[in-house]
Nucleic acid binder design. Structure first.
Lengths: 258, 258
DNA sequence: CTAGGGGCTCACCCTGCGTGAGGGTCAACC
DNA sequence: GGTTGACCCTCACGCAGGGTGAGCCCCTAG
């Protein structure tokens, strides 16, 4: 009923060493050992391995794969279809990214054939900076396929470097307004702070996705809960993450109340 | 006229550390240093970096990128269009692979919804085993876009595991014929050896691409020249690579002569 | 003349395995 | 019952491609 490492390796097209490794890090522990210590994989293990390889092929680090699959193969997972659908989304997203790269390449080739030299900054538009992808997959992991995420991805995918630059500057301005409100000692529910929060919401609307007050509050909570968001605010000024959160909440409450 | 590391990093969307690394390994040495030792990148350097990132994004190891770009940015390269076209091919190939994965996933999902459980072996058909891609990119690097390569890629892309298995067995049979001819002490231009060589050619024709005698000889030379091919034959039996080569050549000569 | 925002060179850390070394296990054949 | 060969086991080091300091120089602005 159980397969040995070598068999599994042959079936799945991975090396024995990889299977040892997955066992070591707890990603895939064979459900049994023979009396002599040989690993013995049953068909549930094979299914889990299949998923592992699928996510791995999509470029996920093994830690994340472990998180996605849930602890030790038992129950914590989310059903086969869930995984299949997620993988499907990730794949089609990735195809879309590559297709954008192809189009960009074709544009570049045309330009080149016309003898037009590209300005060095333009060159880096899409190619190379594949961080967007990575970020997209991060986002996917956290936010699943919400409408907001999809809209944001769709919109931002067509931004050029110049757009990003303008966006960045606008972001900075928005943040500055919040910082100066905080530095001036104004409470988070002061009109100035709330105005800045509202400006923040509008900014999101302009660049990424239409952000209702409710969603805005959700986002604010994430600013406190997710260390990466928290850090990016705390790096600007200490206490800013909390302040932004409070200002957003106050603003949502005020506009909701009247 | 020159950009500093930090500037280049910002423009290209990579970290300063990565640029240091590329300098260290000789992949991208800035064309100059300031008197105080600062790296200074000119626009040729930026262009090279752009290509590096393009290939890196396609998953090439940095060593290979270096080989593709030729020594130290000078002259050895192959012109901008060449790179653009190669990247274009690689991208579209990769898209094709991903699309196959998507189709496979959809099939799996359908099967699952119908309540059909997949046999564990079937599961691993495409997903996970992304070696084919890797091999394809290897092949691409060596053989460029010959017709034979494209045909082979096109055909083999539709093979299932069962096909691969049958193919493998056939390969083994062909090899066995060659080995036993060699072991029996028959010279490489004996009828038996030549027949085995001809069988080898037919085998390629059945599974991969139509292989003329001329191409067959070219392939034979590669069996001696490329250590990976050589090894795979030498692993079967010592001297086999040479023997196969000679048999193929003899066979080509004989059929060509009469 | 001093603070800060770079830049420089070590140098160690991390992931995802590859690749032995040194040694048990198991089925088969003698 | 002994040997052989294919597998299996557990260390344990190595490698790519950087991340992340540490400790120190440089350079411009106030």
């Amino acid at each position: 009923m159980g397969h040995s490492v070598g068999e599994v390796a042959r079936i799945a097209g991975v090396t024995v060493r990889a299977l040892h490794h997955y066992d070591e890090i707890g990603l895939l522990r064979p459900s049994a050992r023979t009396p002599s210590g040989y690993r013995s994989y049953d068909s549930d293990d094979l299914e889990r391995l299949h998923r592992i390889l699928a996510y791995r092929a999509l470029g996920f680090p093994l830690d994340d794969v472990a998180a996605l699959l849930g602890g030790d193969g038992g129950e914590a997972g989310e059903g086969a279809l869930g995984h299949l659908e997620r993988q499907h989304r990730l794949l089609t997203d990735r195809i879309a990214v590559l297709e954008r790269m192809v189009r960009n390449l074709e544009k570049t080739m045309d330009a080149h054939r016309m003898g037009i030299r590209l300005d060095p900054h333009e060159m880096f538009e899409v190619f190379g900076d594949h961080d967007p992808t990575q970020h997209a997959e991060e986002a996917e992991r956290r936010w699943g396929d919400t409408d907001a995420y999809r809209e944001s991805a769709r919109r931002s995918s067509s931004y050029t470097r110049a757009d990003w630059e303008r966006m960045r500057q606008e972001t900075e301005a928005v943040n500055q307004a919040l910082v100066s409100a905080m530095r001036s000692g104004l409470p988070a529910d002061s009109p100035a702070a709330m105005a800045a929060a509202e400006e923040h919401r509008a900014h999101l609307g302009r660049w990424f996705y239409d952000c209702s007050r409710e969603m805005h509050v959700g986002l604010a909570e994430m600013y406190l809960a997710d260390p990466r968001f928290t850090r990016s605010y705390e790096d600007i000024a200490e206490g800013l993450a909390r302040y932004v959160h409070d200002a957003i909440v106050a603003n949502a409450r005020a506009t909701g109340a009247e």
